[in-house]
């Protein structure tokens, strides 16, 4: 876990050229794992502080955008004395290929990890082809 410590610092997300965000919060790129099974492509994103009400997933054309909003982390009666990380929102976009079934995308959030399951379209699922005897 300790090999690339520098990479563990949260990286700020980029905004499209010439635009600004409406929320005055820092925005980070969540770290993701993506793996493929025979039926689906599964995407896991680390979004600590995000619950199911704060996630927004949109699919426009072939761009899948994941947005996670966190609550303001201020604690009444306490002041931040020492900090190693910043709290903020999360945003990341992926282009997906035509092999994903647009109507079957499932998402869940559990303990700060967003899981998006992108089922493959029937047409591209691997099929076993039986060989007929000649």
């Amino acid at each position: 876990m300790a090999e690339d410590k520098k990479d563990m610092v949260k990286q700020p997300a980029a905004t499209p050229a010439g635009t600004e965000r409406t929320r005055a919060r820092r925005v980070f790129v969540p770290r993701v794992d993506i793996y493929e099974t025979s039926e689906a492509i599964v995407l896991l994103a680390d979004m600590p502080g995000v619950d199911e009400t704060g996630v927004d997933i949109t699919l426009e054309k072939n761009v899948l955008t994941l947005v996670g909003q966190t609550a303001n982390g201020a604690r009444p009666g306490y002041s931040l004395a020492y900090a190693e990380y910043d709290a903020g929102d999360y945003e990341r976009a992926f282009t997906i290929s035509d092999e994903v079934d647009r109507d079957r995308i499932e998402a869940t959030v559990k303990s700060g990890v967003l899981r998006v399951v992108l089922y493959k379209a029937e047409a591209v699922k691997a099929r076993k082809i039986a060989i007929k005897a000649a």
């Binding site: 520098k6 610092v9 680390d46 979004m47 600590p48 982390g73 306490y78 931040l80 190693e84 700060g112």
Partner: peptide, 24 residues
């Protein structure tokens, strides 16, 4: 710092609150 997990410490009159991001 580059230690894992990264922590934030909040100081108050009664003591401290330490928070750490440990998703999953």
């Amino acid at each position: 710092g580059h230690e894992f997990p990264a922590i934030n410490a909040w100081a108050g009159e009664e003591g401290m609150v330490v928070t750490a991001e440990l998703p999953g």
